[in-house]
Structure formats: C-alpha cells, structure tokens
Design a protein around this nucleic acid. Structure first.
Length: 589
RNA sequence: GUUCGAGUAGCUCAGCAGGAUAGAGCAUUUGCCUCCUAAGCAAAGGGUCGGGCGUUCGAAUCGCCUCUCGAACACCA
C-alpha cells in the first residue's frame, strides 16, 4: 500500500499545481501541533517568496480547493500561511481495512528491487566468552537484519569469528604444558585423532586467559606460542585437529549464548576462512601497481582530494611480511564477493573503528575487490556505559560476561513477576526470560546506535515508561481482551473496523496508519530506534484508548466487533515491530 | 596538534532536509482499581535547547567563532 503521508501529500501537491504553483510546495508533514491538526503543510510560506504575495493568500486558495476532497475532514488556512489538515474518518478506516486485508505485511510493500546484503555483526573470539562489549553488535545487527528481511531483501548475517592468530597458539601451548601426552603433540602420529575434544568449554575459557597471562611474563612461553601459531598456520596436522576441537567447543557455546539473545547467523565464518585468499589478493594488488612498500610495510594509498584530514594508507602487510587485521578483512571481502556477490556489506562495529574501515573500504574499492556499485556501509555503534557514564564494568572493574548480565536480569525479572502475581514456576521463568530480553534489547535499540548510552540495570528492570516491558505489557493487555472476547462469543462475519467513536480511537488509528512508512524509513536509515519510538507512541495511543473505552462492556455488538478488529490490527503491528527488534511477548505477565 | 562526534528539564533520552506554545520517561506532587491486568491512565511543577555572532518573515535545527567532554589519528584487533 502507498504510504498514507504520500497519499495526502499527493493530494495537496495536486492542489498547488491546479492553482498555478509549483507542486513541490505541497509537501505534507506530520503535525507538530496535534491540538490543531493531524497533518500540516507549510509550503505556502515558502511559496510566498517565489510568487511575491502574502503566504495566507496562497494557503487560502489551496484550502479552498481541498475543502471538498473526501480525504479530509477539515482543511484550514491559518495565520501566516499554515495549512492544517484533518483526515476524514471514512478515509482513514478504509486505509486500515486495507492494512488488515494484507495479513502478513499489513500494507507494508516489499521493496521493488531486493538486494543481497551481507551483514557482519558478531566478532566474538573463539575460546573467550562473550562479554558485554559484544552485546550491542549482536542486538543492533540482528535487528537491522530482520528489518531488511521484512522489507524483502536477502540478508545474510555473518558472525565473523576471531579465530586466527596468536590466541590459538597460546591455547595449544598451554594444553601441551598440561597434557603433553596427548596425541596431538606427537608429530610422528599418523592415525585418526579422537572425536572427543580433550577439554570442556569452561576449561577452555580458563586456559586462554591463563596462557595469555603467562605469555606476558614469560618470553620463552610467548615464543613457544608464536611457534605453535606458525606451525598451526603452516599445516601441522595435530594442531589443526586441535583447532577443530577448539572451534567446535567454542562455537557450540557461542551459539547457545546467541540463542539466548534470539540472535542467529546465517554464516559462521571466521578470520581463518579468509586466509587462503590472502596470497593471490596481495599478489594482484602488487601487480596492478596499487600496493607499494612504505617504511618497510606494504601499503595502498587511500587518500582522496576531498579529504579534510589525513587518511593514512591502508596497510596490507607488516614490515615483517605478516598479515594483519586489514589483510584479513580485505580477504574476507574477496570471498564474500566470490561466494555471495552482495550488493551491500554492512559492518556493525564499534564506532571507534570508523577511520580504519574507511581505509579498508577505499582500498577494496580502489583495488577492485568490489564492484564500483557495491555499497560498503559502516554502521558504528557507541559504547555501552555504566551508570557513572564510564564503560560498563563489573563491580570489581573487570569485563562482565554477557551470560552473567543476562542471567542477573532474568532473575531480577523473575522476582518482579512473582512479587506481583502467583504464577507457576515454569511459566514464571519463561515469562521472565521474555520480559528480560525485551528490557535489554529495547533499552539498547531505543537509543540511536551511533551514540554512547547508559546501561542502567535498575532503570531497565523498573519497567516503567519507555521500556520493553511496557510494550510487552500493552500487547499482553490486548491479548487478554481478545481471549476474553473469544471465550464469550465469536466475531460476526461482517465485523469491520468502524469509523472512530472517540478522539482516542482516531488517534490510535492514525498511529497504526504510519506503520509502513516507519518500516521503510527504519530500513533506509538502518535505524531500529525509529521502530522503538513508533511502538512507544502506538502503545501510548492504545493505552489511552483502552482506558477510555470499555470494550467488553460495549452493548452494540457491531461496535464491539469493530473494536476487536482494531485491537487485532494494533496487536499485529506491535508484534511485527517487536519481531524485527528481536524479542517477543508472553501470553501473560 | 588535526579530524570527527556529543553538549536539549535534576537524571536518561527524542526532536535536527528551518515553521505556530521545544517533547517523552524517570524522579517530585496530585487524582483514578464495585469496571477488559494500576507494569496502566489523567494532571501539575520543572528549559535563556553550552555560549556568541550571522543567514531568514521564522533557528534546538543551517553557517562562522568559542567553551566543555569523548573518540580516532599506519606495523594492535
């Protein structure tokens, strides 16, 4: 369906044109004076300059020719030159009926030209637990992906594991010290390696920090780790078998953690998957004359004439010939283009890496790794801070494990729920998990991704105001009425949404009608927070209506049935929205 | 130092292709459960939109200057 704002704009633009003015002045916006009107057009004041006359002369004329249009309930021309518009009830109701008919998408058209978009939003390291630093990337990336999918794009999420480099060597070295008898360390061994990993995830999570600590103090240990890394990367069989185990154990655990957050990835690729592409890529950059030696390192110039600041060259190989993060990221682009040929790649990464990614993107473009029209988008997010405004830490000052954070909020939530109601243990736990997740995700997503934000556990778990739980509560209220209605009667065949009986009902309808425009805009700007702001408004509008309207007590069957239809539509809109945000509502709470 | 970002109510944040009285939530104060879940609704107080200058009929929004804070600035990822 066409967006309602466009339909209105088109009508007003036609009126401008019909009166001999440039139609561009007919653009309509949402009213910022809801007490006066629902939509407004300020074009007359801008047009006054061009046509050298008083603004209200123009707005009067336009109002005159719009007055009889069935779209509007009222059109007023006000003082300097505002056009204040109110939508006709029938017109609005018809629009909602149209939305309702489109059961899956509620009138939100899929995009005309679906794109293949890869989205890189994980970045967890193998053998290290997820910590709060991984939260934003996961939450924002997942939501952007879901919004894209809803709009009809082919979205491919890639976790992009940190599974390459010294950390692997460190783990192997530590394992060797602890269990030198393992066959993986026997170079003469030729048989099959055991299927069972020689460690559990919790052992692995302890091994890495231990090894990392040792390597900082003990030079020999570090050298051993570097040697192990080298041998691993050059095909030592036993080590590669160990790497398999490390990956499997670690990835299983990561998947479990991400599942708890309702985050999933289409691809579980890692930095190691990019390594095979490096030699050819580097070779080609040299042959094509892009890469040259500067201060010993192999670099590609990426500065442009329009730069307002110095953009250092993109380094491809260190002066010792080793590859680095840039190399891996560029090589990752190589396989992504080769295997998926995406129209766009989105990186959901800490915003502090912006300059770095500017270099990588420019280098990829300049050296022809991507097509000229391939979009490389940096979606930087800000830091998650504690209540003191400084980066989020545990009470002891360490990095908080994500699992711990989630569990503690789950428990907090369970307490609140059981304080308020008596619920069965199992249902209470399940509800607590859903509500907790909404608190965490909404708390994050309702902020603009690019800004730092304060993760205030108390605020997020207090459930008042603009929070995830408030949204869920609204949905639960609707579900509750619908259930009650269904228990008592069946919806008449001819039931339809009827023209609003009150201001609050119309206000609710107006909110609902914005749905497709919001989704489209949220996708275009990769901005989940717009969806949050929308459902908050929608939930407010509903609660206002709910408070004024006794739905179950309504005597007129058809009026009541109309309310039920409106409630169903409201619920669907809310549910689609929280679905793209990445959480869901319980039946009761 | 250079560049980028931020500065809006006591606190956390919206608003920023210029528009009519700058909006929410929390906190504070006050009403509303014989009535579909009060995790709700209604209402009050609270602001020189960091400061200055400019463009404009009109600026939180655009331009310039300035102050404060944060971040980034080639061999880390």
């Amino acid at each position: 369906m066409e967006k309602i704002l466009d339909l209105i704009s088109n009508e007003v633009m036609r009126a401008f044109k019909a009166n001999g003015y440039n139609e561009k002045y007919g653009k309509v916006t949402l009213s910022n004076r809801p007490d006066l009107c629902e939509y407004q057009c300020n074009g007359a004041m801008a047009a006054a300059k061009e046509y050298k006359c008083a603004p209200f002369m123009i707005s009067d004329k336009i109002a005159g020719s719009l007055k009889d249009k069935e779209m509007f309930e009222s059109v007023e021309s006000v003082k300097p030159g505002f056009l204040n518009l109110k939508l006709n009830l029938e017109y609005l109701v018809n629009y909602l009926r149209g939305m309702e008919k489109d059961k899956e998408r509620l009138g939100c058209n899929k995009c005309e030209n679906p794109k293949t978009i890869m989205i890189d939003y994980g970045g967890p390291n193998v053998a290290k637990p997820l910590h709060v630093g991984h939260l934003r990337s996961a939450i924002i990336g997942e939501s952007v992906k879901r919004i894209g999918k809803f709009m009809g794009h082919n979205m491919i999420g890639d976790v992009h594991l940190g599974d390459w480099g010294l950390q692997m060597g460190l783990i192997i070295t530590e394992l060797k010290e602890r269990m030198p008898e393992l066959v993986y360390f026997d170079e003469s061994y030729n048989g099959e390696y055991p299927k069972e990993p020689p460690f559990t995830i919790s052992e692995l999570e302890e091994i890495y920090p231990t090894a990392s600590g040792k390597s900082k103090e003990d030079v020999t240990y570090k050298e051993a780790a570097m040697q192990a890394t080298y041998e691993l990367q050059h095909g030592r069989k036993g080590y590669q078998a160990l790497l398999e185990h490390i990956l499997n154990v670690s990835v299983n655990d990561l998947k479990r953690n991400y599942e708890n957050l309702k985050v999933s990835f289409e691809l579980w690729k890692g930095e190691s998957d990019a390594q095979p592409y490096i030699p050819d890529m580097v070779q080609k950059m040299k042959e094509d004359g892009f890469a040259y030696i500067s201060e010993g390192a192999l670099v590609v110039d990426v500065k442009e004439d329009t730069d307002t600041k110095e953009i250092p060259p993109c380094m491809i190989l260190k002066s010792d010939g080793a590859s680095l993060y840039n190399t891996t990221d560029l090589a990752t682009i190589v396989w992504r283009m080769r295997d998926y040929n995406p129209d766009e790649i989105i990186y959901v990464v800490d915003k502090r890496q912006e300059l770095y990614f500017t270099q990588v993107f420019r280098c990829a473009r300049k050296t022809g790794l991507v097509k000229p029209e391939t979009e490389l988008k940096f979606l930087g997010f800000g830091t998650m801070n504690g209540k003191d405004g400084k980066p989020f830490k545990t009470r002891e000052g360490g990095v908080m494990r994500l699992e711990y954070l989630v569990t503690s909020i789950n428990e907090e939530m369970y307490k609140k729920i059981t304080d308020n109601h008596t619920v069965e243990e199992a249902e209470g736990q399940k509800t607590a998990k859903l509500v907790a997740l909404s608190a965490i995700k909404y708390g994050d997503l309702s902020n603009q991704a690019s800004k730092d934000y304060i993760f205030d556990t108390e605020r997020f778990t207090s459930f008042e105001g603009n929070t995830g739980p408030y949204i869920l509560y609204t949905i639960v209220r609707i579900k509750s009425i619908l259930k009650k209605y269904q228990a008592e009667k069946t919806l008449p065949q001819q039931a339809e949404i009827l023209p609003a009986h009150s201001n609050s009902e119309k206000a609710l309808m107006l909110e609902i009608s914005k749905f497709n425009a919001i989704m489209e805009n949220a996708f275009e700007e990769s901005a989940p927070h717009k969806v949050c702001a929308y459902i908050y408004d929608l939930a407010n509008a509903f609660n206002h209506f709910y408070h004024e309207t006794k739905i179950m007590a309504e005597a007129d069957e058809m009026v009541q049935a109309g309310y039920i239809k409106l409630l169903e539509l409201t619920k669907k809109v809310l549910e689609i929205c929280i679905e793209v945000l990445g959480f869901e509502a319980p039946e009761r709470m």
